[in-house]
């Protein structure tokens, strides 16, 4: 590994360097951040690409110049120690940071060729296409069926209101199809098909989280953002969620924040490593990151020396 370090040192001399690297970063080695560590080449179109995303919470500079391309139909893991800004970055991708008053986001996030931070962005449409699953399962206190169809109902895609039922033009059949499709995709159908009208809060934690995934799928998104979706679950439920994520990557682009490096190694295709202070240090194929990282600090983090 000393070879890599010395190589990095020589590169540092040649590099103009990022303005904020080195000085503000905590850690044992005060190494420079390198542009090429976060350059990740892949075939095909990116689903989302960010350019110089910065986030401030008041005076706190939480994210520094994050620029990455996220490939389509793959699993991208964001890892790093607590407070490194990985969840903040995730929330930038569907503008959920708008809901935090103190958060101030600058930079560009390009999705389907448009910057989602442009004026006039349709948040309804954006969040329909970029779904999110949260850290702890948060189903609504409604029936399983209503949880799944909540989004489409509110968007007017499915109409099962009393009026439409009276007029005989309700979408009950479509609703049933949607519920079944989403629950099957979330690998939950067989467990709940006989109790679709029971309250979702009666499900176990793992089932609730899969229900939340199914609910996010119901609006037919292209991208799924997951913020530590398995951190509140037991090992068995966790492994089911992980299998599910791998399956979902065939049709969806999944971006997952995780604390568990094993999890990132198991399920992701590429991994972005954030380190304390809100810096993206390295972004590459997951195998490369875990077997042969360029940065000494990433290696220390992955081998458990700090973080």
């Amino acid at each position: 590994m000393s070879e890599t370090t010395s190589k990095a040192q020589t590169q540092a001399d040649a590099q103009t360097g990022q303005q904020s690297g080195g000085t503000t970063v905590e850690g044992e080695t005060q190494e420079e951040l390198r542009e090429e560590w976060v350059q990740y080449e892949f075939d095909g179109q990116p689903a989302i690409s960010t350019r110089d995303v910065n986030v401030h919470y008041g005076d706190d500079h939480a994210l520094h110049d994050i620029s990455i391309d996220i490939p389509k139909n793959s699993v991208t893991a964001l890892i790093g120690p607590s407070g490194c800004g990985k969840s903040t970055f995730l929330r930038c991708l569907n503008r959920m940071n708008d809901r935090i008053k103190a958060a101030d986001v600058s930079g560009e996030v390009e999705f389907n060729g448009k910057n989602i931070y442009d004026k006039g962005t349709n948040l309804v449409e954006l969040r329909k296409r970029i779904g999110q699953v949260f850290q702890s399962p948060n189903p609504f206190p409604k029936s399983i069926r209503k949880n799944i169809s909540y989004g489409p109902r509110k968007h007017g895609d499915i109409d099962v209101s009393l009026l439409s039922r009276l007029l005989g033009r309700d979408d009950s059949d479509e609703e049933d199809e949607l519920v079944e499709r989403c629950l099957r995709q979330a690998a939950l159908w067989d467990e709940v098909k006989d109790r679709l009208d029971d309250n979702a809060l009666g499900l176990s934690g793992g089932q609730q989280q899969r229900l939340c995934i199914a609910r996010a799928l119901a609006t037919d998104p292209e991208v799924l953002l997951m913020d530590e979706p398995a951190s509140a679950l037991d090992p068995i439920a966790t492994s089911r969620i992980e299998d599910l994520i791998s399956d979902l990557a065939e049709d969806y682009t999944v971006v997952i924040v995780t604390h568990s490096m094993q999890q990132a190694a198991r399920i992701s295709d590429q991994t972005a490593v954030f380190l304390t202070g809100g810096y993206l240090v390295e972004y590459d194929d997951t195998d490369k990151i875990f077997e042969n990282p360029e940065s000494q600090r990433v290696e220390d983090y992955i081998t458990g020396k700090f973080g």
Binding site: M96, V124, F134, N138, K154, A216, T219
Partner: peptide
């Protein structure tokens, strides 16, 4: 009413008023 409900609803693209009407007030 837990903020998680509001977050979940917002993440599905549902407007604030719809969220209040169908999640917050019933809860």
């Amino acid at each position: 009413v837990p903020d998680e409900y509001r977050d979940a609803s917002a993440a599905l693209g549902v407007s604030q008023w719809q969220t209040i009407k169908s999640v917050v007030v019933p809860a």
